[in-house]
Design a protein around this nucleic acid. Structure first.
Lengths: 354, 354
DNA sequence: TTGTACGCGTTATCAA
DNA sequence: TTGATAACGCGTACAA
């Protein structure tokens, strides 16, 4: 198409520097220089930054002014090396492409950054090997805290994380025994809500589409249990592997039809799957919800924009990040008596596909 | 809905530790311990890790064995402090929720991690203030390199980045004068391709929907120039601010209709906008492409799953990350004579909306 | 309230 | 090819 060897140049706008101090240049200033200019010892400058209340008001103001004019910022490596602790909070997501995880990480960062912490994102890719490697690398980085968008299943990693001696937040589930702190919701309850909603709509024969490990399995188990309790029958279960896009939902739905679907309603344990299923159904002339009801979980961006809107069970991902940030700040500030579990509410969004 | 105060516990699977070495526990081993066990000085251990060719083969093998059994990994803070350089490569994305940026970062990480670099993701949120602050913080972190999913517009930041003295990669555009290295495509060409494709389909009166700053503006300018050249008329331009979801595309399309649309084809400079527009058109009974043609840019996940598929101009985001990784590795390895610009090909994906 | 002395763990530099 | 020494920049521990 375009000739990649001779692209037209883009006339990118160049925004001139505002008058005043130019860009910080050369070597960053060290604490010693700030101390000299302010006529104090380096340790006093350090105290102004770490324990301002321990420094005389006038001295502090003078030092702060020098810090301001020099643009001094302490070297994070030296700080981490000396104190054995850094201001980095590492957030691990199992899939960097997930919108929900992105929202949670974003609000975590929004909560922590004003307090001087830096949030960095790592990816575990639903792989245990990767998870082991990343947790090993934490031993060197010594972050201030770690958050996972998920829970840790490998005992080995649970132990390793505990040994780090830093706050650890697990999310996206509600296990009996979190490693340390928890901001999550019950996946079992989500599955149960699904069965209840479909029963209420009069469905008796149900199908399930979802991952057969991890959180998908937790939702499936809750779905199964509630179905049994309500006297419903689960006539098909389509297990899927890693979910990379809408295409997986289309494939799973096709598999359901290939097996001669006998269900009148389908619970998809993930909205990407549900949306894909909805698109596939429509392309086959299957009317949703008239011919078949579809219920999703997780609420991604597309779910409420397609027609009919996808009815889904969801929660506020940003609220998870926010609550995680607040828990962490409390713990890092040494607040005693923190309730280390926070439950996020599940919500049923009615949009017409059931 | 569910009672958030009493969620059901999730019975998370616990995967037992495999037999063999337990989790790394306690303080990480220091180089001194490794040296003692191997009967050498610490510096020799360091050399085995940094410049293995400078160490006698037998000595090296003996040290490597001790490293293996102890699980030693050097402390990144100490290393960065002493050597003034870390193994961290920082990738800044303007929006952590973007799928395309995610793909690029993912393949950047895949290219760099085998070589011992760690990729950390930061977010600039399309905000200059944020960008200034993050670049300032780089002075302390001293990363091995930086990548941006975008180009830097503020002269102040361009200068600051140059002063860092580390490799800097800009992407997602093709400016005349990149700060350092560049892996991008021409947004002007993308706009031109759009006009050409619509002209070829016989359209004479066009509309544009997109951001009126940044890369959106570059595509618009290319679109305008080509339209003029081809004797087409751009009868509407709908500028949008920050794009957060499909809803922005719906709103922009509605705005277009409110202005009494006279165009027979619309170029949306972003697929989220285009998909939103397509959904809005469908919900209003406007047939695409019969009543109105829609052409997008960027190819997100949804674009090829909806009906009709969105015809779009795109590129391989993963290839950008990969090429950036290779350029960086070459530079970091000190390879002389690197061509610091890499152009990625634009591709027209025909899917029925034009 | 402020300062002195020292060490965090590593690697650059120079010497052997 | 290997080692001794010092220094990276900061903050803890303790002293004044």
């Amino acid at each position: 198409m375009s000739d990649p060897t001779k692209p037209t140049y883009d006339d990118v706008v160049r925004i001139p520097a505002p008058p005043g101090r130019g860009p910080a240049t050369g070597r960053p200033p060290r604490i010693e220089e700030v101390a000299e200019r302010a006529g104090v010892a380096p340790i006093t400058v350090s105290r102004v930054l770490r324990h301002p209340e321990k420094v005389n008001r006038e001295t502090r103001d003078r030092i702060l002014e020098v810090i301001e004019t020099t643009g001094y910022a302490s070297n994070p490596h030296a700080r981490a090396l000396r104190s054995g602790r850094s201001n980095v909070v590492v957030a691990f997501v199992s899939n960097i492409l997930s919108q929900q995880f992105g929202l949670a990480v974003r609000s975590l960062a929004a909560a922590l950054e004003p307090e001087g912490y830096e949030v960095l994102v790592g990816q575990t890719s639903y792989s245990y090997a990767k998870e082991v490697a990343m947790i090993q690398s934490l031993r060197g980085i010594r972050p201030a805290a770690v958050m996972f968008t998920g829970v840790i299943e490998l005992q080995e990693n649970r132990a390793a994380l505990q040994e780090l001696g830093i706050p650890v937040i697990e999310t996206w589930a509600f296990p009996r025994d979190p490693i340390d702190m928890l901001v999550g919701f019950s996946n079992a309850d989500a599955g149960a809500m699904a069965a209840e909603r479909l029963a209420q709509a009069g469905h008796r024969r149900l199908a399930f589409i979802g991952r057969s490990s991890g959180r998908g399995a937790l939702r499936r188990d809750g779905f199964r249990a509630a179905a049994t309790r309500l006297g419903l029958e689960i006539v098909h279960e389509i297990g899927v592997g890693e979910i990379t896009g809408l295409v997986d939902g289309r494939a799973a739905f096709t598999a359901l039809l290939d097996r001669g679907n006998r269900a009148s309603a389908v619970f998809c344990a993930n909205d990407l799957l549900a949306t894909g299923a909805l698109i596939e159904a429509r392309s086959r002339g299957i009317s949703v919800p008239r011919d078949l009801a579809l219920l999703g979980f997780g609420d991604n961006d597309v779910a409420d924009q397609i027609t009919p809107g996808l009815t889904t069970i969801t929660f506020n991902a940003a609220a998870i990040g926010r609550a995680a940030g607040e828990l962490l700040l409390a713990r890092l500030a040494g607040t005693p008596q923190i309730e280390p579990r926070h439950a996020v509410e599940l919500v049923l969004l009615e949009r017409g596909s059931v």
